[in-house]
Design a protein around this nucleic acid. Sequence first.
DNA 1: CGAAGCGATTGCAACTTGCAACCACTTCGG
DNA 2: CCGAAGTGGTTGCAAGTTGCAATCGCTTCG
Lengths: 176, 176
Amino acid sequence: MRGRPRSGCAINAAVEALGDQWSLIVLRDVIFGGRRHFRDLLARNEEGIASNILAARLKALVAAGLLTHEPAGRGRKGTYSLTEAGIQTVPILAALGSWGLRHRPTTPELSVRARLLEEGGPPLWNDLMDELREIHLGIPRPHPERPRPSRLLQEAYLRAVAEHKKNPRDGEGAGV
Amino acid sequence: MRGRPRSGCAINAAVEALGDQWSLIVLRDVIFGGRRHFRDLLARNEEGIASNILAARLKALVAAGLLTHEPAGRGRKGTYSLTEAGIQTVPILAALGSWGLRHRPTTPELSVRARLLEEGGPPLWNDLMDELREIHLGIPRPHPERPRPSRLLQEAYLRAVAEHKKNPRDGEGAGV
DNA sequence: CGAAGCGATTGCAACTTGCAACCACTTCGG
DNA sequence: CCGAAGTGGTTGCAAGTTGCAATCGCTTCG
């Protein structure tokens, strides 16, 4: 997508790969939303990404080695999978979530996951990454006895939505 | 800089504020490079940022509440300072650095800091943030007996450069 | 066999990026 | 007191990127 790197700095390298308005949003939807198909990523996206932007970002993420793509033929359901490099963006997303939670306005329903992710800390991130390795790479989880982090996050989200319906005092439902 | 947020998601909020090719690079230079003046940020920047881009980014970062600016009059040396929100981007930069280190090509000299930051983990990040609070906000460090993280990082960098000079086997000195 | 769903692509206007030049002002050395 | 160097930017402009809306060819479902 780009020529040679602007410098050999590790932070710069990450910014060059992930530093735009959409790449990390798409990764978030794949990682936390469990979405693996174009239509799914397009229609259920919270921020209303456009289809051409999504197509371009997916292409770039595949080229950058964060995702792989099995096309499955025209008109049929292709699947995007995370690579190990994609899975390892979890700590970045967690750090961004913690920061956004503290320093930006957010809605309670949508920020539950960020809060939970912060409370769980690195141990939870690692469990989540193990689960993602199982789902996307077929590598069995090393601790199958532990609850699946995706379920914890999903349940917390649903609970927050229910809570919000019961007591919707925020100025219009901003999010969904 | 932007209208209303695209959604109430914490990760999205962070991406809207920091998700471009330059904002985090500027913050990196302020945080790890100790640069606080326009000219300093412009001339010593590793990636060769243009002056108009730097001006626009600084303005945006001030507007977003990550930096403050004391103008000091035309022709005189004004100073940019980190706010608490700006200081709390340290974990984000650390996470990006760890990822870049693992999954992108980097040069040894420039990635020492990322490596050190990863090895030190959250305790080191917190010490660094305390030091930044002292420098930029005038809040005394809670643990003055500990070595200043900025010195550790700087010394490691200089050591790496010396090491590299002694044994420069990388294909042309890509970075500086 | 028609409607809905699939993964995109295209056209186009608006905006952003980044190079190069320039600007008004202050400070420093002699 | 004067010129050079340093201060923090702004302006012009070409090239590239973003994002809305419409469309497309295909498959699957009822």
